[in-house]
Structure formats: structure tokens, C-alpha cells
């Protein structure tokens, strides 16, 4: 952990060498998610609601997923951009260091420019939390925090899967976007609106609904089951198979070296 913080400081120092560029990139990141927000805004302007969810409820859902995705992108960038870590030899370097390879990959990148998106999520929260007619009791606030934390773990897990796939193919990597970017995009709206098959997939295969739809329905009083608020823990459980896949990938790398 101490080592990780040292690495973060180094990344921050590096980024600060190019302040103007950094600021523009943050702005760019902010705009990326802003145009997505504008899209949602226009859609609700036209239709008023989606299924039985109001604009504010959708925004809370969207912001939680955006927050989780951006936080994971910021701190787990080493996995998200793993093909570059391999191709420029950093991974070989990590293999000759006396530390867990996974820790070193985690440390190898940190993308603070993603704060632009994180800020966006915070701004949307700041608007939607008071504007929605949800009574913000302690357990609901707790649930929202769980959504963000569990979601971050979930997306981190997806990035680790993506990195593990890099050991086998770099060309075919694009299909992982279905789950990473696709998860973020689908997660804009509460997952139950897409129908049962999609909801089941995102409950049992990739537990995105566990950090999104189920806790959201607790927050919006659509259900009284408190254990729905604890479902975001599934995001952390999801990390276990991801680690396993990573180990397989490293073993493969050691045997092909490519």
C-alpha cells in the first residue's frame, strides 16, 4: 500500500510536468461525459420518463455508474491500457522485480485526467440527490456509497479480465468493450428496463445489476429488502474469478513470451 501511494505521487508529479496539457485533457474528459449527459437530458425532455423511472432517479443511477467507471479507469489504468504496458516492455520489467506482478501493473499507470469524468459524476450527484424526491436517510446514503464502491471494484475486475485477454490476443481485444464501455452505457439506465434476459445476464454473469438496479430499487423504495443494499458487495466477489483469469494469463505469457 505504501508503495502504491509512492507510485501515485510519481504519476502525479509526471502529470504536473505538463500542466496546460493536463488541464485540457481534464476538460476533454469532462466534455465526453457531458455530451452523454446532454443526450440523456434531451431524451427526457422529449419523453419525460423511461419505464417508470424519473429523470432524477435515472441520473443517480447514471452518476453512480459513471463514478465507478471513472474511478476504476483512473486507478486501474494499468490494466485498462495493458497492451501498452506489454508492448513497451514494462511488463518484462515488472517480472524482474521482487514484488507481486499484479501490484506492479496496478502501479504502472494512473490517469488523473479521468478526474474530469469523476467531477462530472459528482456534479450530477450534487444536482440529482436533492432534486429527487427520495428521503435521504442514513441507510440510503450508505447504499449509494456501496453502489459507487462496488461498481469501482466491478469495473476494475472487468479491466483485469481485459488485461488477461491481452496475454492471448491484442487484436481481438475490442470485443471486451462490450462489457466495459457497454456496461457503462447500459448502466446509464436502470438495468430492469431492458427486460429479463439482460437483467439476468448482468446479475449472474457480470454482476452489474448488483451495484446498480438492486440497490437503486432500495434507495427509491421500490423494495423494502435491506439486503438489496448489500448486493454491491458482489462487485468485490467478482474480483475473485478475475484474479484467477489473470493468473492463467501470466502463466501463458511465461510460456510464450510474446
Amino acid at each position: 500500500m505504501r508503495l502504491y501511494i509512492k507510485f501515485l505521487l510519481m504519476h502525479l508529479k509526471s502529470a504536473m510536468e505538463y500542466k496546460a496539457s493536463f488541464a485540457l485533457t481534464v476538460l476533454g474528459q469532462f466534455m465526453t461525459s457531458f455530451s452523454a449527459f446532454l443526450g440523456i437530458y434531451f431524451m427526457f425532455g422529449r419523453f419525460g420518463a423511461v419505464g417508470d423511472y424519473s429523470f432524477e432517479e435515472t441520473l443517480i443511477c447514471y452518476a453512480a455508474v459513471l463514478f465507478a467507471y471513472s474511478a476504476a479507469e483512473c486507478f486501474f489504468r494499468g490494466f485498462d491500457a495493458f497492451e501498452s504496458v506489454i508492448s513497451n516492455g514494462e511488463f518484462d520489467r515488472a517480472m524482474v522485480r521482487p514484488r507481486p506482478v499484479m501490484l506492479l501493473v496496478l502501479c504502472s499507470r494512473a490517469e488523473f485526467a479521468r478526474f474530469g469524468r469523476l467531477m462530472q459524476a459528482v456534479v450530477i450527484f450534487a444536482y440529482a440527490i436533492p432534486a429527487s424526491d427520495i428521503g435521504w436517510t442514513a441507510d440510503r446514503i450508505f447504499t449509494l456509497i456501496m453502489m459507487c464502491a462496488g461498481g469501482t471494484a466491478l469495473f476494475a475486475g472487468l479491466f483485469i479480465v481485459r488485461a488477461s485477454v491481452c496475454f492471448f490476443t491484442v487484436e481481438g481485444l475490442e470485443f471486451m468493450n462490450i462489457f466495459t464501455d457497454g456496461g457503462r452505457e447500459l448502466g446509464t439506465y436502470p438495468l430492469d428496463i431492458y427486460g429479463q434476459p439482460v437483467l439476468r445476464f448482468y446479475t449472474y454473469v457480470i454482476p452489474l445489476a448488483c451495484v446498480q438496479y438492486y440497490p437503486l430499487s432500495y434507495i427509491t423504495a421500490r423494495t423494502g429488502r435491506f439486503w438489496y443494499a448489500l448486493l454491491p458487495l458482489a462487485g468485490f466477489v467478482f474480483l475473485v474469478p478475475c484474479f484467477a483469469l489473470w493468473r492463467i494469463g501470466v502463466r501463458h505469457y511465461k510460456s510464450t513470451g510474446s
Binding site: 518484462d92 517480472m95 524482474v96 511465461k254 510460456s255 513470451g257
Partner: peptide, 10 residues
């Protein structure tokens, strides 16, 4: 790479 532990030989 074999000697530095990056690569496992057949």
C-alpha cells in the same frame, strides 16, 4: 528471458 525468469522453457 529464461535466465531472468520471464520465460518458462518447454
Amino acid at each position: 528471458k529464461v535466465m531472468s525468469g520471464i520465460l518458462t522453457p518447454d
